[in-house]
């Protein structure tokens, strides 16, 4: 299977280079972390499997339309009553069943795999994400700092994002790192991502939330471990505190720029989830904390 993936991938890369001359522009196809890579591999696999069906179908269509066109001198056979062939029908029930079966196996395998943190990597860190109208607030529970509309993360360590919304639901998406997950009021859903390459990437809100929804992108700075520690230190020393009143101010609908805070009210994320109906969701599957399993490894 591996070689098929590689062939397909090379083919696709060639197409893209041919089309645009530049491949950096496609974060989904050039992810910088293991989650995105797994998803990219599935994208390629499914595209190749589909091409196996689509290309012959289109070729067959072109051939049939040409060969059996209604021209006076067309000498191709004409059998107006031929309408049944068990063998042929057996073949084209068979082909899609096999293809769908193969694709299903990989789909189910990776669906389960992606609910767990990326394997064989560093110590996980945790970031709590709240989507507001029309901005993103990030809390770092271990470091005690908070940011608005940007995050810094260390390269090579899995990040467990805990997601909620204190406004209409949005969807938290950093294409270069991997797939998205919704931010829903009253729930704290979890998403594992990881970046292995230092750089700046774009994250965005993917679900419509009203007037200024288009302005809801945020920057993701992936840094070396030491640079990350320095950034935290700098925040702690230089930035203002986020108070309850400050959060209320942020919550008002509107667009703001990037902001940094040296501290925040400790339970604010948990309180936000509870306030919006989280008490009904205590048994929810997505809200289970996998970081304990991770630490046991």
């Amino acid at each position: 299977m591996k070689s098929l993936w590689q062939k397909g991938f090379i083919l696709l890369i060639l197409c893209l280079i041919f089309l645009t001359g530049c491949s950096e522009k496609y974060p989904v196809l050039h992810p910088v972390g293991p989650v995105g890579e797994k998803e990219r591999n599935l994208i390629i696999l499914s595209a190749v499997l589909m091409a196996i069906v689509i290309i012959p179908v289109i070729a067959l269509l072109a051939f049939i339309v040409y060969r059996y066109r209604d021209k006076p001198n067309n000498r191709a056979p004409y059998k107006p009553n031929w309408d049944d062939s068990k063998i042929l029908e057996f073949v084209w029930w068979g082909i899609p069943i096999i293809i769908i079966a193969v694709l299903s196996i990989y789909t189910v395998r990776d669906t389960f795999a992606l609910t767990k943190p990326p394997a064989n990597t560093g110590e996980p860190i945790s970031i709590q994400v709240t989507s507001l109208d029309w901005k993103w607030v990030f809390f770092y529970p271990d470091e005690g700092v908070a940011t608005v509309n940007y995050i810094d993360i260390p390269a090579g360590r899995p990040v467990q994002f805990e997601l909620t919304s204190d406004a209409p639901m949005n969807s938290f998406w950093i294409p270069a790192l991997g797939g998205q997950e919704y931010t829903m009021p009253g729930m704290a859903m979890r998403l594992w991502l990881q970046a292995n390459k230092v750089g700046t990437y774009t994250g965005k809100g993917a679900n419509f939330t009203g007037k200024e929804f288009s302005k809801m992108s945020f920057a993701v700075h992936v840094k070396k471990e030491t640079d990350f520690d320095q950034w935290v230190k700098a925040l702690k020393n230089q930035s203002p505190q986020l108070t309850e009143a400050g959060y209320k101010q942020l919550k008002k609908p509107g667009v703001v720029g990037k902001k940094s805070f040296s501290s925040y009210p400790k339970d604010i994320f948990h309180d936000t989830v509870m306030k919006n109906g989280g008490k009904y969701m205590n048994n929810d599957w997505m809200m289970k904390d996998h970081s304990q399993e991770m630490k046991g490894k």
Binding site: E39, L42, S46, W173, G178, G179, Q180, N207
Partner: peptide, 11 residues
Amino acid sequence: VAPADYQYHNS
């Protein structure tokens, strides 16, 4: 393909 959909959804 559910995991891949995480990258397509709403795009």
